[in-house]
Nucleic acid binder design. Structure first.
Lengths: 333, 333
DNA sequence: TTGTATGCGTTATCAG
DNA sequence: CTGATAACGCATACAA
């Protein structure tokens, strides 16, 4: 004898002696409900412990009060930090978060976007290194608003919140160029938009500082601590005495790899990394880094998304947030 | 002139010249559809780019193919690792993940559980340090299955997947007791179940190794790197020469704090930590740790949850996974 | 201020 | 093997 406990708006209506429409009104705080009946309904809701069914509500209203997040990794400190910003603002606006890991694979990204669309999310925050054409097309056909966090769309079609990575790279490399002839750029895949920006900034800074550039100075790598550790030989072999690294985990790996090989940092080798996440504090020496406002990137993205969802006017399609340099121990000053 | 693009099952039915019931059947792979009509319908679906509305489906079927995750922090390496395990299995079973941060606050935990229930999640994975009575009560009233990951319910009412923290602590402290008279336990709040287990293990190990115990050897702290760094003076003041730490971030902070104070690890001070997350590799020396199968904790939890959702038989309410010791550089061997 | 009726896009039951 | 049709639980336009 399965008892069906589900308490619906009809139950409340019946007990309160009103119509279900009235119950719906008080639940949604809609105007024009007499104070006495409002209270009566509220009491019954309390009494019956009624909870509106968000699914039914979503079907009727076409809004799910849920947003979707696509990201390339659950563990990477960069994205974790952004998520906190997203979460705080999402909570303020009463959105729940549907989250999914794409591994940075465009096919998975597309599948996840479709998935989210099917679940009727009100908006999507997309994170990654780049925006594949296939993904951009999918997004453009969506009626659901999408915003990029911590990256930009090179085609500038999709709204985005990020920092100026090219300029930040110029600044970071400029610091290293003071004390060094031969610099290395250690970056994620150059097919990715965010990294081509950095690549451009790297070259620009070398030129501005009258340093030679060759492709050999550029190392592409996966974003992981292990990958960073394995780079030591290559970096030393090319004769570099300083490196700009685009990822904190990789930088930590490179640093520890160098230390384990007896190279002193910053005396014999200087490192600047890019995200200033907590990882940069774990190492000794800790890592000088571009200081991106990652929390803000998340918070602004989410706030931005609420505007898109509500079809509010927006001034700029892309928000470029300011960054700083966090000078720590892996540079000599 | 708002064009309503939404393509429903009716559109497909009309174009394919069948009833919507038949379309529903082919979409859901239900038996008894003639092969020719199946193909015809499939073609139309492709042609119209029809996507089933998961919300409507959820309302009609009472299943959302979504699970909820409650956790105390987005950034903590411990939970991130568990999430990967959850995600992999969730993906296998085609579940999406609704995730929310409780900050470990029971009130928020309750609110989030209600939220998830309202969104009709098919199951909930709950993470934290402990299970407040209020939360347990809420859970017990839910018709939605809940499972605890990386923790247990002291009352053993809620199913759980974790390791034997008491026993692991006994082992870890036993290692430290070999070389040291005075040991410190650095733990999260002792009001939390997981930590009382460790506390018991700590005392047990001291006794077994004929070491004195006093409350002064126990330091309660927040789970953060900064909190760990600030502990140096207290730890040294109590005369401890070794510490068992229940959290990797805290252990990393303590280690770096000691190093910054000129204390040599492991020569002058030994440390064992508890989670063997990637953080233990970032430090130099890297950290000896209990090696919990965190990925498996997540994966098993999710698999377990699918069984509860499908009302399959389960042998044990609680799964205790095996752990190892990962001996690294913060102990002398 | 309140109630009635309809629709949201599916699933699922029951006939045929 | 297929088609009607009734839920699912709520929001909302329209009446009253």
């Amino acid at each position: 004898m399965e008892e069906n406990n589900t308490i619906t708006i009809y139950d409340v209506a019946r007990v309160a002696g009103v119509s279900m429409a009235t119950v719906s009104r008080v639940v949604n705080g809609v105007a024009n409900v007499k104070e006495t009946t409002r209270k009566r309904v509220l009491n019954v809701i309390e009494e019956l412990d009624y909870r509106p069914n968000a699914i039914a509500r979503g079907l009727a209203s076409k809004r799910s009060t849920t947003i979707g997040i696509v990201l390339p990794s659950f563990t990477h400190s960069y994205y974790s930090r952004i998520i906190i910003g997203i979460d705080d603002v999402a909570r303020m606006y009463n959105y729940n978060i549907l989250i999914a890991n794409s591994d940075g694979d465009p096919d998975k990204e597309m599948a996840l976007i479709d998935d989210f669309a099917a679940k009727q999310v009100d908006g999507i925050i997309f994170m990654g290194d780049t925006m594949a054409d296939s993904v951009r097309q999918r997004i453009s056909r969506l009626r659901t608003p999408v915003i990029l966090a911590g990256m930009i769309d090179p085609e500038e079609q999709v709204p985005a919140v990020t920092i100026d990575h090219r300029q930040a790279t110029v600044e970071a490399v400029g610091i290293l160029a003071k004390n060094h002839e031969k610099l290395a750029l250690i970056t994620g895949p150059l097919v990715n938009a965010i990294n081509t920006e950095r690549f451009d900034g790297f070259k620009e800074a070398l030129e501005a500082n009258h340093r030679a550039f060759s492709e050999l100075q550029v190392i592409e790598t996966k974003y992981s601590y292990k990958a960073g550790m394995k780079l030591v030989d290559r970096v030393l072999a090319m004769g570099a005495t300083a490196a700009y690294v685009t990822d904190d985990e990789v930088a930590a790996g490179l640093l520890n790899g160098l230390l384990d090989s007896g190279v002193k940092v910053p005396e014999d080798f200087e490192i600047i990394t890019s995200n200033n996440t907590i990882v940069t504090n774990y190492t000794r020496p800790n890592l000088t880094s571009i200081d991106q406002p990652l929390y803000d990137v998340g918070a602004v993205s989410m706030r931005f998304l609420t505007k898109l969802i509500n079809k509010e006017e927006i001034d700029e399609k892309t928000a470029i947030l300011p960054y700083r340099m966090a000078i720590k121990q892996s540079t000599r000053q």
